[in-house]
Amino acid sequence: MKILVIEDESELRQLICNTLKKDNYVIEYAADFKSALSKINDYDYECIVLDIMLPGGSGLDILSYIRGQKIDVGILIISAKDSVEDKVIGLDLGADDYLAKPFHLSELTARIKSIIRRRDGNTIMSISLGNVEMWPDSHHFKVDGKDVDLNKKEFALLYYFLINKNRVVNKLSLIESVWGDNIDQADNYDFIYSQIKNVKRKLKLAGATIDIKAVYGFGYKTIEL
């Protein structure tokens, strides 16, 4: 599984590379327009993380080049230009998803994994950890081979935890991902606690070998028991 990260800002590039390496992806990177194009021509990638503003050219031109050459690769645009037009243009040109900077690394990982899963053309592909298995597209969840019922929010939460299994997931990124971008400034996090309590209870009842551990006041981490 090879991923190309095209981002000119070295600090951010390293962060993205490092976080993706945790999920055992092979990461390559390009810091400008030219080297990005030559990398795309020379190697095959599963997914490309593409910044729009690059030295030497626009990421959108790389995008249209890739689609013009019919190169089969998933593309996630990461842009600081959080403008509707860019998003529309990017998706029109054939990007798979669009993520505005600044983003949570856990959200980036979730988006990339979702792109890769969808591009495999194999929507029945599942995510598994320990004895639990999840089919995100068909909304199925099994513990030890047995179906476990989860409501929409519980499912979304658990999906986010499983996909970020090696990371501490911050509660703010959790809210943004599960409840949406418009829910900020919550002054009380009880609603997450109660949903997570339900998920934990259901996991325990079904005899799952994973658990969601709170990391002090910061967030949660999914661990294998």
Binding site: K101, P102, F103, L105, S106, N170
Partner: peptide
């Protein structure tokens, strides 16, 4: 946005 993204990522790491 880029520096913000970097700081945020660093904290997450």
């Amino acid at each position: 946005q880029t520096p913000l993204a970097i700081v945020m990522g660093k904290l997450e790491m």
